[in-house]
Simulated assay, not measured.
Amino acid sequence: MWDSYLYFESESTTKAFLQQTYEECCIPKANVYAFQNASKFIYYIKQARQYYSSASHSDILVRPLLLYYGMVSLLKAYVLTRDPDYPSNTRVLQHGVTSRKMKKSYYSFAEDEVRVQKEGLLPYLYSFLNKDGLNEKYRLQNLLAVIPELQPAYQRLYKQITMTSVSLSSHRNFEQLCTIFYLPEFVLDEVHLTYDAFIHYLNRYNKGKASFAASVIEAPRGIIRLEWHHPENIHVTENGDGFENTLFTHDYKGNFSFKIKMDKAHTIPEVVTHYMIMYVLGMLCRYETERWGEIVFSFMSEDMYMIQEFLTLSARKFPNLVYNLLLKERYIFRIE
Rank of each mutant, 00 (worst) to 15 (best):
F109K: 07
I161C: 01
L121M: 06
E136D: 07
Q176Y: 12
D132C: 04
R139E: 14
R115A: 14
L183G: 02
T164S: 13
Q160I: 03
N173P: 03
P184V: 02
L129C: 15
L134C: 13
H171Y: 12
V114E: 07
P184E: 10
A110K: 11
E185A: 10
Y182S: 09
Y182I: 00
L177F: 14
L143M: 10
S127D: 11
K131D: 13
V166Y: 00
R156V: 03
L150N: 01
I180W: 14
L188I: 08
T164E: 12
N135V: 04
L122M: 13
L143S: 00
T164Q: 02
T164W: 10
N173W: 10
S170T: 08
E185Y: 12
E111I: 08
A153S: 15
Q160F: 04
I161D: 05
Y158S: 14
S170V: 12
D112E: 11
A110V: 07
V187E: 06
L168Y: 12
N130Q: 03
V116I: 15
L157S: 06
Q155S: 11
Y124E: 09
F128D: 05
E149H: 07
E111S: 12
F128W: 08
A145N: 15
L140W: 03
N130R: 10
N142L: 14
F181I: 05
G133T: 03
S165V: 05
C178K: 09
V116W: 02
M163E: 04
Q117Y: 06
Y158D: 05
N135Q: 06
L168R: 12
L177G: 01
S127K: 03
P123D: 03
K131P: 07
Q160E: 10
K131W: 09
T162I: 04
R115G: 04
L140I: 14
K159A: 11
Y138W: 11
G133V: 08
V116T: 04
Y182D: 07
L125Q: 00
K159C: 11
L183P: 11
R156A: 14
H171P: 01
A153T: 13
F109E: 02
P184H: 06
T162G: 09
T179H: 03
F109D: 06
F128C: 10
L134D: 13
I147M: 03
L125N: 00
E136W: 15
N142E: 14
L140C: 04
L125D: 05
L129K: 08
E185K: 01
A145E: 02
S165W: 05
P184R: 04
V114N: 03
E175G: 03
E113M: 11
T179I: 02
T164Y: 01
E136G: 15
D132G: 05
V114K: 01
A153R: 08
R172M: 11
L188G: 00
L188R: 13
F186H: 09
P184F: 02
E136Q: 13
F174C: 09
L122K: 07
P184T: 06
P184C: 01
L177K: 15
L122F: 02
N130G: 08
L150M: 09
N130C: 15
P184S: 08
L129G: 12
Y158G: 12
K131T: 13
Y182R: 13
L121H: 00
I161F: 01
L188S: 05
E119T: 10
S165R: 14
Y126A: 04
Q155D: 06
F109L: 04
F128I: 07
F181P: 09
V187T: 08
